[in-house]
Design a protein around this nucleic acid. Structure first.
Lengths: 213, 213
DNA sequence: TCGTGTGAAGAACTTCACAGCT
DNA sequence: AGCTGTGAAGTTCTTCACACGA
């Protein structure tokens, strides 16, 4: 069955919320309350979950632990993925220190940059930055599943090609460019400035419509 | 007229691409070539632009400079917004040093944190980190338009409330939580871990279907 | 009675296809 | 001839509404 992409996004959000619920020792939740917490309609929550099975009890709701477990299974969160980050600028370093990644099963194995001045400096508590030329050797010794691209747009495609050659399975691309990739490589694009510009539009729009009407 | 939200996202992407085209001295582009560069259908490009006017010439295409200018106008990129960042962890610091923001008209005026150990340390080349208690005074002296929330989920709503009291217009929220806000405050949510988990799902899914079929 | 699961209806978004300008 | 602008068709996603189980 075809799963809508927005559904996947929301599953990841549900997962976060369930972790929190569990932390608050709430053992059961209805689609209504769940949706209200997240600004999502109850029917949407039920529909999303129904793509994958019947997780709830009629008249009762969903068991927090069971649902967390099931969504974790669906998202493949129990698996772990070995990650390399390419681009040790501010964003790359921030990602290195982003605790939520290990929690999601992404283990950062190496950080690479082409700037030799950065080499061996620490990107986070543990990881020294390596030169991009060492990437191939490194990948031979460490099975890499996922590459994170935090280099400027100009070099992003070149880095993507290198990553593809390492037989990775997926890429998170922070560079503002559409990468050309083989079909079997999964990709998530995340251009942060797009969110800022979208906000800029919303604010401008409101001001324009206030002026008019 | 109602503008689809995906259209706004894409306008921001078009803008980025046009900047690049201009840099490459390409003065004209068709919707076809434009779309191909971005992995978007030509008809989609034309439809998106048509919501805002007629920017192209039939038989010719779009003038790069004129279109860049028009989209900039639409997105409100010529305006500048004064920004405060709340949360001077790794992500907050990365945002401070994110050049694309000033280019998009977001001027970072201040960085705040509740951890007194961080105070007066530099978040980037220019900006000292201030304590969150100083936020109100600061906002009285600097008209703030936009707040960026990079604190943990637990404190995000509290910070959002503080920001709303400062009469800001919009928020970029990196915390994994749905903020409750007045209708007149614009919001963009950007939970980075969602992208990783979505990738995790895509990879797991592929492996499952390969095993089956 | 309460809340899930789900076909069916509805809304939102994308793509087609072609008239019409250059 | 080439390419835009746009109604109309098509597709995808969301919401409704209700049967059914706890």
């Amino acid at each position: 069955m075809k799963i809508p992409k927005p559904t996947i996004r929301r599953l990841a959000i549900y997962y976060r919320c369930l972790e929190k619920l569990l932390h608050e020792s709430q053992m059961n939740i209805s689609s209504k309350e769940f949706g209200d917490r997240l600004g999502i309609k109850a029917s949407q929550v039920r529909k999303d979950l129904s793509y994958f099975g019947e997780f709830g009890k009629r008249g009762v709701g969903y068991n927090t632990v069971k649902l967390l477990d099931s969504i974790g299974e669906i998202l493949g969160i129990k698996k772990t993925w070995n990650v390399v980050i390419v681009g040790a600028g501010n964003l790359g370093k921030a990602i290195c220190n982003f605790e939520a990644l290990e929690e999601s099963g992404f283990i950062i194995k190496g950080v690479f940059d082409r700037d030799r001045n950065k080499i061996e400096k620490r990107a986070n508590n543990k990881l020294p930055i390596k030169h991009i030329d060492e990437l191939n050797d490194f990948a031979n010794n460490n099975k890499i599943d996922v590459g994170v691209i935090t280099v400027p747009a100009e070099s992003a495609q070149e880095i993507a090609n290198k990553l593809v050659n390492l037989k990775i399975k997926g890429i998170i691309n922070f560079a503002p460019i559409k990468l050309k990739l083989p079909d079997n490589i999964k990709i998530e694009d995340l251009d942060i400035s797009v969110f800022f510009r979208s906000l800029s539009f919303q604010i401008s729009m409101e001001q324009r419509s206030l002026r008019k009407g």
